[in-house]
Write a protein that binds this DNA or RNA. Structure first.
Lengths: 338, 338
DNA sequence: CTGTTAGCGCGTTCAT
DNA sequence: ATGAACGCGCTAACAG
């Protein structure tokens, strides 16, 4: 592999001239410039980026931390991040943490060791835990799809308002017994959305009943199981509607109801959260909250790039709240009057 | 940020000793070792990986090229790649190509410029096109979920046999008119699976009718549209079964049939391909070919790492064929006898 | 076992 | 406009 030296000697100039020819061509005489270009062509010279990166002490690389790469909502966000990063000449490294704190820490060390310049965190910040890896000194970071109160920059929607709107929609349709399938109890998004649920119930003049709540893990199977539990072991009368804290669990819920010979939405209404592409094609199409995942990815990448490039101080942390959209499809209907 | 020099001077040793203390601790006397460790602790020293990477001239990074990050099957493969790469101390860079050849080329240049060590390509190699970016001199590469005949290492399933099995399953259930929804016509996987379709039809004593074939793009909407076209504009009698070349399109097909008031599988049987998690939860659960996406990711990452590390010559290219599994669920049934 | 020396490939002075 | 010289942080070769 040809180096800058080979180019210089073939062109009969100094290495500095080659560098200049590449970076500030107008500061090089036309004659030498063309000689250099020719030499580059002949040798098939490619600047060693590893060296450049080392010399400039920045990798132009950001790390995306995802608890679970299989989650399609995260895929959407990543797509946005990759697009925006590419635009600003940053590479994107994927970090699958599987929810492990030690893995997260490995990635923080990567930016400490300069192998990456910053982190985008998809796992919501947990206010209760003391051992959060982020924020971390000298580690530019942005939280995406997180919660208010995150002690560093954050791009999100108003989860509380969105969840509240879901409940109000159901209540307006006459539903009085509303089952809730949450994410993991300690998850901040679960907590915030649950606040919204309670606010919605209160505003609708309904009471919050913990017996109508089941913990899921944001995956389909848990939505299925939670729903079975709700409809079989739950208090009577059974819920006529279920709010699931993401679409995957909502699809699992619909499946469970089908198995129990209950129709959606005639017997039970279902509301999801996230708006996966699949959800519009499901039967029935799912009523859900659309998070602008791609845009959230774009926004978070740009904010992180700003911090890394020093455009943003990095001290004052942003809290960007993007608009969500509540989409009413066919999985919800007025409560049946028997 | 403390450098190795700071550590050396604080510990009162040479830089080389610090390096050794970090890499071959047993070759350093216990006394100095502890002095060095203490200095590292005090200074909070982290080796500059950028420098290491530069010095060793390898980034320990692989690039994954995906035409579309939103495709859940690719997400599965990526998850496997990330897990295996992590195991072998490689980082994973995601490259969204959007099917653009020039973007692919950018990533090839990244490995030429040493910013990455190799490439995993998810876009199948196209035999017909002459301007394929890969294989490329000095660019270790592995194709995953590709086709036989790929001129570099490849991890795949036997698409032809799998597609054939789908057709034979339908034929055995009495279906004579079988609609086909393909991927993009020029896509190699489409071509190979179509071969399997033809082989299956022939073995079943059925003829191949191009009028029963529609081109899709592997996305849900195209499956929906293709199915509408098949059931409305297609030749009579209408198909009693449709084979879709991936699950997303199959879900779109089911949706279309539902809108047309046709039941699945009573009126029309549907077979998919890939086995997404969603497909088992759909109504009805989808009969499909399960590709071991995660394992394919793991395998491809290991092969690439072998090539990069020189374990494998890189000259002789592997062609690893992993087993698929044909899963019969409830979207297929014997043809109805009127 | 240890320190000295010599680069890796490049960008960046600083003279000229 | 150009080249010589230095150094980024680290590892590897050699001598001791």
């Amino acid at each position: 592999m040809a180096t800058i030296r080979d180019v210089a000697s073939l062109a009969g100039v100094s290495r500095a001239t080659v560098t200049r020819a590449l970076q500030e061509p107008d500061k090089v005489s036309p004659a030498r410039l063309s000689r250099v270009k020719e030499a580059i062509r002949v040798l098939g010279y490619r600047p060693n980026m590893l060296s450049q990166t080392f010399r400039k002490n920045q990798a132009r690389t950001i790390v995306v931390l995802a608890p679970n790469l299989a989650n399609p909502f995260f895929s959407k966000v990543i797509a946005g991040i990759v697009a925006a990063a590419d635009e600003r000449d940053f590479r994107v490294l994927v970090g699958a943490t599987d929810g492990s704190v030690s893995k997260e820490f490995d990635f923080v060390r990567m930016v400490e060791s300069r192998l990456a310049d910053g982190i985008i965190q998809m796992n919501p910040f947990t206010l209760s835990e003391r051992n959060a890896v982020l924020p971390h000194q000298h580690v530019p970071a942005v939280s995406v799809a997180g919660v208010p109160g995150t002690p560093y920059s954050c791009v999100r929607i108003d989860n509380r308002a969105a969840a509240k709107e879901c409940i109000l929609h159901l209540a307006a349709s006459g539903h009085q017994k509303i089952g809730i399938v949450t994410g993991p109890t300690h998850n901040s998004n679960t907590m915030v959305r649950l606040e919204g649920v309670k606010a919605g119930l209160e505003e609708a003049g309904l009471s919050y009943n913990p017996n109508l709540v089941r913990e899921g893990d944001f995956r389909m199977l848990s939505g299925l199981q939670a729903t079975e539990s709700l409809m079989q072991d739950g208090p009577d009368p059974k819920p006529t509607a279920i709010f699931c804290m993401n679409d995957e669990m909502a699809l699992g819920a619909i499946r469970a109801l089908h198995t129990l010979n209950l129709r959606v939405p005639e017997d039970v209404s279902i509301v999801g959260f996230d708006s996966l592409d699949f959800s519009a094609f499901f039967m029935p199409p799912l009523t859900t909250v659309e998070q602008p995942g791609y845009d959230m990815g774009v926004s978070s990448a740009n904010i992180l790039a700003d911090i890394i490039e020093g455009v943003s101080a990095g001290q004052e942390s942003h809290d960007v709240v993007l608009p969500y959209r509540f989409i009413i499809r066919q999985s919800t209907a007025p409560v049946r009057v028997d």
